[in-house]
Amino acid sequence: MNLKNSYIHLRGLRFHAFHGVMAQERMVGNDYEVDLRLRVNVERAMLSDDVADTVNYAEVYQLAKQVMGEPRHLVEHVAARIAQAILGKWSQVDEVNVCLTKRNPPMGADCEGAGVELCVTR
């Protein structure tokens, strides 16, 4: 068996956070959804069955939660900080995809959300 690519993903992480350009957003907050996909070679973990041979997704969640808890103006900036934090902590991560959605954007539209998707590599 040859492993071509492997990814660790966390989907639909939900946070209430205080990001936004408008003062009201930073005071009341909004609901956000984060999807993460990390390109990681998990071949060793496939064979060893040991979490030490992979990236622990519970730790990835904690890192994303920490970044989401730091109020910023733009979702672009928040998404980039999440990607940067992941790449900074785990050298075995080659690429990070971050999709960050503000669930109720204050733009007068009936929609499921607005946000940004980044693909960041080393």
Rank of each mutant, 00 (worst) to 15 (best):
Asn2Leu: 12
Asn2Tyr: 04
Asn2Phe: 03
Leu3Ser: 08
Lys4Ile: 15
Lys4Thr: 15
Asn5Arg: 15
Asn5Ala: 14
Ser6Phe: 05
Tyr7Ser: 07
Ile8Cys: 08
His9Leu: 05
His9Ala: 10
Leu10Asn: 07
Leu10Asp: 11
Arg11Trp: 02
Arg11Ala: 10
Gly12Trp: 09
Gly12Arg: 14
Phe15His: 07
Phe18Ala: 08
Phe18Met: 03
His19Met: 11
His19Ala: 07
His19Phe: 12
Val21Lys: 11
Val21Ser: 12
Val21Leu: 12
Ala23Asn: 10
Gln24Met: 13
Glu25Val: 13
Glu25Pro: 15
Arg26Asp: 10
Arg26Met: 05
Met27Tyr: 08
Val28Glu: 13
Val28Trp: 06
Gly29Thr: 11
Gly29Asp: 02
Asn30Arg: 01
Asn30Leu: 10
Asp31Ala: 14
Asp31Leu: 11
Tyr32Asn: 03
Glu33Arg: 15
Val34Cys: 12
Val34Tyr: 02
Asp35Thr: 07
Leu36Thr: 11
Arg37Ser: 14
Val40Gly: 06
Val42Lys: 06
Glu43Ile: 13
Glu43Pro: 14
Met46Thr: 07
Leu47Thr: 04
Leu47His: 11
Ser48Val: 13
Asp49Val: 04
Asp49Thr: 06
Asp50Ala: 02
Ala52Ser: 02
Ala52Leu: 02
Ala52Cys: 01
Thr54Arg: 01
Thr54Ala: 02
Thr54Gln: 04
Asn56Met: 04
Tyr57Ser: 12
Tyr57Met: 13
Tyr57Asn: 14
Ala58Met: 11
Ala58Pro: 15
Ala58Trp: 03
Glu59Trp: 11
Val60Ile: 15
Val60His: 10
Tyr61Glu: 13
Tyr61Ala: 14
Gln62Tyr: 09
Leu63Pro: 12
Leu63Ala: 11
Lys65Gln: 13
Lys65Ser: 10
Lys65Met: 09
Gln66Cys: 06
Met68Thr: 00
Met68Val: 01
Gly69Arg: 00
Arg72Phe: 03
His73Ile: 08
Leu74Cys: 04
Glu76Cys: 14
Glu76Lys: 05
His77Leu: 07
His77Tyr: 02
Val78Ile: 08
Val78Phe: 02
Ala79Asn: 03
Ala80Leu: 04
Ala80Arg: 01
Ala80Lys: 00
Ile82Phe: 08
Ala83Ser: 10
Ala83Cys: 10
Gln84Gly: 06
Ala85Asn: 08
Ile86Pro: 15
Ile86Met: 14
Ile86Glu: 12
Ile86Trp: 09
Leu87Thr: 05
Gly88Leu: 12
Lys89Met: 15
Trp90Lys: 02
Asp94Leu: 05
Asp94Val: 06
Glu95Ser: 06
Val98Lys: 00
Val98Met: 06
Cys99Ile: 14
Cys99Gln: 12
Leu100Glu: 04
Thr101Leu: 03
Lys102Arg: 09
Lys102Ile: 00
Arg103Pro: 10
Asn104Glu: 11
Asn104Gly: 06
Pro105Phe: 00
Pro105Gly: 00
Met107Tyr: 05
Gly108Tyr: 09
Gly108Ala: 13
Gly108Cys: 12
Ala109Glu: 11
Ala109Val: 11
Ala109His: 01
Ala109Phe: 07
Asp110Ile: 15
Asp110Gly: 03
Cys111Ser: 03
Glu112Leu: 04
Glu112Tyr: 01
Gly113Lys: 00
Gly113His: 02
Gly113Phe: 07
Gly115Glu: 08
Val116Ser: 04
Val116Lys: 01
Glu117Leu: 12
Leu118Phe: 14
Cys119His: 04
Cys119Gly: 05
Cys119Thr: 14
Val120Ile: 15
